[in-house]
């Protein structure tokens, strides 16, 4: 399974997503890819009704999540309803069309807890 990755500066330790050419904190070029993990928390979200050309799903649920290491990301949420603080996990899938071609990426879906 494809893992969602962020970046870490080998010089100052700053972790971030998405990629930057230089470390946003110290300017170093020594950056390595890091696994962001498979659990994140929803920080804020919106249900978008006025979607752009290339998006077919109405409404489109979008949110900003925070991973355990503090790195955040924005993405689509695969759910009908959602609340701030919900636990989500990244999942790969088609996002939208750009110039007629489907683009894929990570979205977030609620973590289904196994009953013990």
């Amino acid at each position: 399974m494809q893992k969602m990755t962020g970046f870490k500066c080998e010089k100052c330790g700053k972790m971030f997503y998405p990629k930057h050419a230089r470390c946003p904190r110290c300017g170093s070029l020594e950056l390595k890819e890091i696994d962001l993990g498979n659990e994140c928390t929803l920080m804020t979200y919106t249900k978008l009704f006025a979607v752009p050309e290339g998006v077919e799903q109405i409404p489109l649920l979008l949110g900003i999540v925070e991973f355990k290491n503090g790195v955040r990301a924005l993405g689509q949420i695969v759910a009908e309803e959602v609340e701030i603080g919900a636990t989500l996990q990244p999942v790969w899938g088609p996002l939208r069309k750009v110039h007629g071609k489907t683009v894929s990426g990570f979205k977030f879906e609620p973590v289904k807890r196994k009953l013990s």
Partner: peptide
Amino acid sequence: RITDLISTMVHPTAEYVHGVTLPALAAM
């Protein structure tokens, strides 16, 4: 179409491809 064209100013890989618009960022 106008919503999409205005959205081209947001981050190309971390925002735009996810269907983000300026109203969506303002809403969050």
